[in-house]
Design a protein around this nucleic acid. Structure first.
Lengths: 195, 195
DNA sequence: CTATATTCTTAACCCAAGTTAAGATCGTCA
DNA sequence: TGACGATCTTAACTTGGGTTAAGAATATAG
């Protein structure tokens, strides 16, 4: 399959974008590769593009003024959308950094073109709504993890539900994502032995 | 002002719903009062209505199977929308209870009628998108509070940003919302004296 | 295959929240 | 007003994560 076909298939799966609707968008998609550590979108930048990850892993993180260390907020991997959602929909500066953690390849589309597609096809309107719902679910799941689960439970659920992330990201990034320090994650892992 | 006028004004502020668009919806809104402790929507129920709070305060909470105690997730108060968003948009059973904490009055609309309005007017489509964005912001803010702030910081920010909630809700509900136990909140409050 | 950098674990000590139970305070209604 | 229920605080102890720094394990490159 070509990259375009992969995209077409994924958009069809995600939002029922059919061949005709996909054709409308075809001129607008562009391709970009990112090196490890390269930014998809930086702090204080307005996120203007919605990306679809053909390959690679991205993280969005927050830098705490006080503790000065990075806190991982989301991971995005292969066949997922990558975007700084709030910044994208409101076109305001982003509070986060979104960075490629590996060599990555992305197909992306400009917000203006996306807005144009919304007006041209119900399929794309539907796509816009589903992206909103996906963003809501991501944020809500994250809130629920912290409200209802202990760090140990979050760790176990990450292994269960996102082995793709767990197996491709250094543990100190996992710790940050779980909201704890690296030594605490080590203690948790030690505790688990034999359970 | 009549209650309908209050609603009309609020919807105009929120999503630019004009007189004509509001007229479309007028037949669909219904009014209901809730007593203290009465449920807007219960665990395992599908949320079928989107409500606008004329007066009162609601809370949505989760019951932890293990600890068996209630964890407050959101508060909703006067002039806000109350809805179990995920359940509402997906029409699936809700994981939460949403309960009135006071005598309350709500104007509500059925999801079928709302969907009908989406098709009939761009103003209402816009409304739907803004509700989605509001829900995303609520969830994301909640996640950020837990990821980036200490319980003490969360407490201070709640007082600053939501005095309306803080002043009308017992402290043990506040503690639950902050993700801590009542004795911990007492200790935080004691620490604060003199700061 | 070693040297080096990166990542992971461990140890020791600190501190804040959890837990449980008792007691103080506040509100409300008979 | 006085008594009850609801709410809030306090105390004593436990537990688990934070912090810092050192060392072990693993990857990577020369």
């Amino acid at each position: 399959m070509t990259e375009t076909q992969i995209l077409n298939y994924a958009l069809n799966q995600f939002a029922g974008i059919d061949a005709e609707a996909f054709e409308l968008s075809a001129p607008y998609w562009q391709r970009k590769t990112y090196g490890k550590g390269e930014f998809y979108n930086e702090y204080k930048n307005v996120c203007k593009y919605l990306g679809f990850i053909l390959d690679g892993v991205f993280r969005t993180y927050y830098i705490d003024d006080e503790s000065a260390d990075e806190k991982n907020v989301f991971f995005f991997s292969k066949n997922q959308v990558v975007v700084a959602y709030k910044s994208f929909v409101t076109q305001t500066p982003c509070s986060y950094y979104t960075e490629s953690m590996t060599e990555s390849t992305v197909l992306y589309i400009h917000i203006n073109h996306l807005n144009e597609l919304y007006g041209r096809s119900h399929h794309w309107e539907r796509f816009g709504r589903l992206v909103a719902e996906t963003a809501f679910n991501l944020a809500m799941n994250r809130a629920e993890e912290f409200m209802f689960r202990t760090p140990e439970q979050r760790y176990l659920e990450l292994i269960q539900n996102h082995p793709d992330i767990f197996n491709n990201v250094p543990l100190y990034h996992i710790a940050s994502y779980l909201g704890i320090q690296a030594p605490s994650l080590s203690r948790i892992r030690k505790r688990m032995v034999g359970k």
